[in-house]
Design a protein around this nucleic acid. Sequence first.
DNA 1: TTGACAAAGGATAACTATTATCATCTAATA
DNA 2: TATTAGATGATAATAGTTATCCTTTGTCAA
Lengths: 145, 145
Amino acid sequence: MPDPLGGFRERCKQRGLAFTHQRQVIFEAITAAKDHPTPEAIYETVRRRIPSISLATVYKNVRIFLDAAILSEVSLHHGSLRLEGNPEAHHHLICSRCRSITDLDSSDMKPAQFTGKVPKGFRVERQIVEMIGICASCAKRQSSK
Amino acid sequence: MPDPLGGFRERCKQRGLAFTHQRQVIFEAITAAKDHPTPEAIYETVRRRIPSISLATVYKNVRIFLDAAILSEVSLHHGSLRLEGNPEAHHHLICSRCRSITDLDSSDMKPAQFTGKVPKGFRVERQIVEMIGICASCAKRQSSK
DNA sequence: TTGACAAAGGATAACTATTATCATCTAATA
DNA sequence: TATTAGATGATAATAGTTATCCTTTGTCAA
């Protein structure tokens, strides 16, 4: 049967990370959550199992998991507000390294088609496609990974 | 000929906003920018034309423009990190009011197709579709707008 | 035009999210 | 089991943003 922790112990070892109880519980809380939680929300969840845990430990491990690509973040642009001055419908080309954003004209995009069903009562108004990758200057700067 | 400010003066009047020099210059700076600037970057730009302007004025007007839907923001999830514990490729259904995120299975999504050309050297790795709208409970809470 | 007043601007304090620091403590390895 | 690099917990520091408060200005009616 598949490991619910996805071989977390091994993944830590691979990356030279110590396998600690806190780290394990934090990781479990994030992967078990269905709502894309904030670090603060994870802290509240983890506290039920490890009351003495520090918020700093949660933040530190979240950062470690992100840097090690064990986890990812929903938006590449949290941290600071980015303004959209272009009133035309369009899509975005995003570099996952430098986080630069380039507009893609919507006339060049055949929209995605969702064939499943959305939650009852949800009114979809628009769709934005994020094409994510590595821009030329970031690719040049670092050979791989 | 089309108004480069998009009838900014009229739009202010419609919404009961005073038409001030600062407001006009801030708006121009945002719509002229091609890089989805941060409030801080706008401040630096505007300062060249109005050296005495306060950073607080930039922030206040940015918020007013967003609330009045005169401008929009690139990511609905700046402000706090949202973690992605789901390792499977998938897309997101996002409520623009409460900012809740629901995963959409990628097997239910026929991907968008970009027919234009990306900047030279950009290596696209994946695409995420954000379907944005109003969730049932937010729609219930407020009748319109 | 002008005068009154609501709204906006500027300076700065306060707040929130996140990271850094540092003194213990513990997992990994020999 | 002893050693030690790395982890934790407490808390200070920082960055981004919002609130406060007093002064100034745009709006509108006379």
